[in-house]
Computed example of a mutant assay.
Amino acid sequence: MSAKNRQLTVLTVLPFAMMGVVALVDVLAGSKVGLLPMVAVGPAFASLEGGRRRVACVGAIALLLCLGLGWYDDLTDVRRASTIIASVVGVTVAGFVAVSLREQREEELENVRSIAEAAQRVLLKPVPRLAGDLRAAVSYMSAVAEARIGGDLYEVVAAPQGVRVIVGDVQGKGLEAVETAAVVLGAFREAALDEPDLIGLGRRLDRSVARQLDGEKFVTAILAEVRDREVTFLNYGHPPPLLIHADGSVALPEPPWYTLPLGLTAHAPAEPAPFRADFHPGDQLLLYTDGVTEARDDDGRFYPLAERSHLLKDDDSEAALEILRQDLLQHVSGPLHDDAAMLLLRYR
């Protein structure tokens, strides 16, 4: 049972448990203890979960319990009895008001979530399952599960120069990160069709990010171009790609030198250098964000992505990526602390 389900179970049982404890103590200790007004805690806790009908039900049970315990305790003080009943009725009414306000806030939050999901769908459109000779599959997990939106980005474009891909990670979270991701993706979708090489494409993206962020934040990214059984990379401070060959061997291609992320290259000593690797039918290329490799287990160990490459053996690309995603979640034994995106490319 998940933590959220356990919490809901506790909130469901809590009002009845509290009233039961009060009734038991009152029966065992007698009326001299004066616990009878504590029956009102039942309707108070009932407003934490469920609707108005639940509060009314718990309030009615509390009222009947007060009448029964009052008769059992031979309560003859009319003023005291009236005060106890009034307290139960008052807390029940307050529970009605609390439930109404909670449901209103939940409705507003649901509207915000719907807008966030719509923005995410516009921002991160489903990648084409087939691009040129390649088959693509994507997995995206946001650290903010309630919002289902984050700052990781990806895109696949079948350009005349070859299939061009980007996977990136915007510094920060929230709406500012989403806005920056939209700028990067918009620039990539346009420039990927125009620029003759990855160097020109990278410059276009860097200018767009620099104008948007004004030197305050940055975007790590890796660009890839697949053409003629070869893949060319351009790395802007991003984790290295994972290349899995048909024989099962694994490579993590790295550039001749590392450069700064997009938005900060004006401070870099040199532009990023393209680097190449063979990419033949039967090979697999996995691009990802640092939310994958920096995911830790309970002992603080990072997720060993390269060692888990054998999990990508399913013939269906999406099924293989789902197996890897589930293994990642099992490694952390809970929600991720950072957004995690993975993009898998295969020859079809």
Rank of each mutant, 00 (worst) to 15 (best):
V184W: 05
G186W: 06
A187N: 00
A187W: 02
F188W: 08
R189S: 08
E190Q: 14
E190H: 13
A191P: 09
A191W: 04
A192V: 10
A192C: 07
P196D: 14
D197Q: 06
I199K: 06
I199G: 01
G200W: 03
G200M: 07
G200D: 12
G202C: 04
R203D: 12
R203K: 12
D206E: 13
D206H: 03
D206G: 02
A210E: 14
R211N: 11
L213I: 15
L213E: 14
L213K: 10
L213C: 11
D214M: 13
D214N: 13
G215S: 10
G215W: 07
E216M: 04
E216T: 14
K217T: 15
V219D: 05
V219W: 05
I222Q: 03
L223I: 05
L223H: 07
L223N: 05
A224N: 06
V226S: 02
V226C: 05
V226R: 03
R227S: 15
R227A: 15
R229K: 12
F233Q: 03
L234D: 02
L234V: 10
L234P: 02
N235Q: 11
N235C: 13
Y236N: 09
Y236G: 02
Y236H: 15
Y236C: 11
G237L: 07
G237A: 12
H238S: 06
P239D: 06
P239K: 08
P240W: 06
P241M: 09
I244G: 02
I244R: 11
A246H: 13
A246V: 12
D247P: 02
D247K: 01
D247L: 00
D247E: 08
P253D: 10
E254H: 00
P255K: 04
P256R: 09
P256C: 00
Y258M: 12
T259R: 07
L260N: 03
G263I: 05
T265D: 00
A266Y: 07
A266C: 00
A266L: 04
H267Q: 14
P269V: 05
P269M: 05
A270M: 08
P272I: 08
P272S: 04
P274S: 01
P274M: 04
P274I: 03
F275K: 03
F275H: 14
D278H: 13
H280N: 09
L285V: 05
L286D: 09
G291I: 08
G291L: 07
T293G: 03
T293P: 01
R296C: 10
R296K: 15
R296D: 00
G300W: 06
R301Y: 13
R301M: 11
R301K: 13
F302P: 04
F302S: 11
F302Q: 12
Y303W: 10
P304M: 06
L305G: 02
L305E: 04
A306G: 10
E307T: 01
S309L: 01
H310F: 12
L312T: 05
K313N: 14
K313M: 06
D315N: 11
